[in-house]
Amino acid sequence: MRRLNHALAVLAVLGLAAGCSSAHGRADTASDTGDDTTKAGYAAGSPFWVDPESSAAQQARLWEQQDRDDDVELIRRIADRPAALWPPGETDPAPTVRAAASAASEEGKTAVFVAYNIPHRDCGQHSAGGSQDADAYREWIGQFADALGEAEALVVLEPDAVAHMVDGCTPGEYHAEREQLLSEAITRLKQQPNTKVYLDAGNADWIREPDKLVEPLRRVGIEQADGFALNVSNFQTDDETTEYGVRLAEALGGKHFVIDTSRNGNGPLPGVWCNPPGRALGTPPTTQTGERTLDAYLWIKRPGESDGDCEGGPDAGRWWPEYALELARNAKD
């Protein structure tokens, strides 16, 4: 089966994958694509799976029917490149995870996911929500992990969760439980034989001093993870984020990391973190980073999905074709 089942297609159309946000510059994927930017070549040679039923892919098919050739060419810059899947937090994630993992395995690819359902998620901002309580989260992450099976997978774990404890946004009474849940989640996901886990660690413009993240990351079990993730859903440049990541990696004893480059082609817009205008797609997903501890540039945020109800955008995680076109139009490649 090369195409996802109907349930996953519906999710892609509706844009139900959650986003994440923060007033500190967060808003709600790893491959080797080289420089080939032909339609068939965006993901050529990539070890990562491209979702054939993503919102961008469906938009491309719709515009093809409408003879919007220029827009189709632009949106293919998104549709034909690998991006992470954000399985639903409100329901059982297994159907989404299992379908993607199965499709990726059939193609000999690695599926990239984001696990984003920690209790008290996003401090009540645009992507507020998460599991009802600790037991519900344990059940959810267990369903997620079971559905991965033996497939090659990469999971970015809980954007914002650690940084929101460090900056004080998440109330102190929730910290001990969150640390325990994150530690358990890493352990559970790593029980799957071919799953890599990267724990989110915010971005370079949020927790400005990476040393402040070292002990919190250790408390939640970063040693058991494959590494940490930076710039998820944000716009900080590759150079700034890499420098920050190297410093944090050294402080963690050489831990590796990945960077979200999905929308950082023009860098950040000062003072605007939610759907900032004038942004661009960043470095296409690749494992050729030139930095020993930087495992990959990823498109973790799915380009074209809204950060939230701001700057004219729909709710967090909803597909916004006009914004997607702007990102692609402004991209350098």
Rank of each mutant, 00 (worst) to 15 (best):
S262N: 09
T286C: 12
K212G: 04
D307L: 09
L181Q: 12
G253Y: 01
T289S: 06
Y244D: 02
L182M: 12
D238R: 08
G267L: 12
G271W: 06
G265R: 13
T241P: 00
A249Q: 10
P216K: 06
D239H: 09
I207R: 04
D200Y: 15
G308K: 07
E250R: 15
P268R: 10
T293D: 02
D239M: 10
E240A: 09
Y198V: 06
E177T: 10
L269I: 09
Q191P: 00
D239F: 10
H256K: 15
S183T: 05
F228H: 00
H256A: 12
P268H: 10
Q224T: 11
T287N: 08
A251T: 03
H175I: 14
N203K: 11
Q224C: 01
W206K: 14
P210N: 15
G254H: 01
L248N: 07
S262Y: 06
T237D: 02
K255Q: 11
I186N: 04
G278L: 06
L298V: 07
R219H: 12
E184T: 09
P216Q: 05
I259H: 07
G265Y: 06
T237Q: 07
D239C: 12
L294T: 03
A296H: 00
K190H: 09
L213C: 07
A280C: 08
G282T: 11
T293R: 05
R247M: 08
E173A: 02
G202M: 11
R178K: 15
L248I: 04
T293M: 01
Q191Y: 14
P270L: 08
A204D: 11
L294P: 00
P270E: 06
